[in-house]
Design a protein around this nucleic acid. Sequence first.
RNA 1: CGGGGAGUAGCGCAGCCUGGUAGCGCAUCUGCUUUGGGAGCAGAGGGUCGGAGGUUCGAAUCCUCUCUCCCCGACCA
Length: 515
Amino acid sequence: MTQTNIRHALSVKRADDFAQWYQEVISEADMAEESGVRGCMVIKPWGYGIWERMQKLLDEQIKATGAENCYFPLFIPLSFFAKEAEHVEGFAKEMAVVTHHRLISDGKGGLVPDPAAKLEEPLVVRPTSETVIGAAMARWIQSWRDLPLLTNQWANVVRWEMRTRMFLRTTEFLWQEGHTAHADKTDAMAETLDILELYRAFAEGPLAMPVIAGEKPANERFPGADATYSIEAMMQDGKALQAGTSHYLGTTFAEAAGIRYQDREGGQQLCHTTSWGVSTRLIGGVIMTHGDDDGLRVPPQIAPWQVVILPMLRENDGDAALLDYCEALRKALAAQSALGEPVRVLLDKRPGKATQKRWAWIKKGVPLVLEIGGRDADGGQVSVLRRHRLWRADGKVDFHAMERDQFVAAAATELECIQRELYEEAKARRDANIRRDLATLDDLAAFYSEDAQFPGWAEMAWSRPEGAELDAVDARLKALKLTIRNTPMDGAPVSGTCPFTGKPAVERIYVARAY
RNA sequence: CGGGGAGUAGCGCAGCCUGGUAGCGCAUCUGCUUUGGGAGCAGAGGGUCGGAGGUUCGAAUCCUCUCUCCCCGACCA
């Protein structure tokens, strides 16, 4: 293997310790850091810049569906949750609660909540906003003419999870949550599935992250939902990551909050509601989909900078001319359009050697790095590094020398190519790690045994059991540390017997270890 | 929340058992040399040893409590 010659930018390789590698990418790419507050992270400019790119693209698409952005309170009265038993039960164990509004001295130099300032009713820090938005919907909706009501908010939420991991499961995280109300089930279900498709296209487009869109089994539903759909992505260690969800909530929340409308015949009807969201967890998904042993590789569409120019400064009289050349190059590139937007290009003029700065940008995963020296400037050339194909076979960094004008003209195509190749690479890896030939539970157990170490997913025939029968299946999977991810929406024909129940299969499921 | 590990300079670590001047590597700064692919040499700066309390003439080191992180589990749209 020529690989052994390569001096990678990270100290931990994916193959050696995936969890440690993941954390090293985050710190070395300068995306986020530990905050000192339990389970909460500081998202640094590079990580937040990626989030802002996701926000921008997704926000445009959400608005294109007709949804409008709003903002609802961070604090939700406990009584709002109490109205819906299943919902409150689902979140009760992970809610942060505000009980006081003032501190007083404890007489020992410290501060304690003032017993005299105890809130009459505790306030929950929102773990999700169905209840408080439902209360608003009940005020906003009177007539069939008010429907559908399509709202979205970009917000932070808090869930007091026992075990946290940066981006994947933090106590506080950022997300968008859409909440809609409809006249009937048909309309609400159409909204639920439209958004699921929007999420699929967003993941597979801008994020270059292949996903399976499908319906969750009953035991994995959102608390209070009639049906839950998800997009599921395979990480490089073979585990599944739930990357987005869309819920059909039936009339459950409408009943709890009194969301009713008067129909054309003058009768009172309950609304059918939906909710759907994606979060900063997507950043974790991008890391574990595209990262390599040199750090992150950011798909061009969500890269805060798509091209970084590094002048090889010598701290002498030649620097001024070199910087002029680089600045002209920057302008020429910024005038190009790639993937539907102006090319985002940074001229990194900070003092320091280009070789040192190069590795910092490689670890951040900028798609194209240009190192420009005096010889390039004199010859009208550029030296190009493509982040997603970094190494030559001999273990050296793979620079390409190109004519400047030729590179500028090809830059947009190059970025689009990188975007596509990252997707294709991830899709090929995922498809190669799905087993479709497991007909029995013994097969399944063998594939996931300690010895076999099969890391991917299994696609299996499924008879769609519910209730106690489903619980029994869930328990058997749990013994193998497996979970049911979802039933794909692709509508492919199904035959054979469900290995879990022995009954005729009606659909398929994906089974996997999960984050 | 249960079991295990850890917190000492920006980062990575040694020192702790057996209490007695705060150490090393990388990074940073300065100078010189080098310069088309992750530079070399010399010098310098930088630390309430996670926090609080206790034992002691004296605590990074011993004791108690506590906070945070990592791993395994449980939990988790």
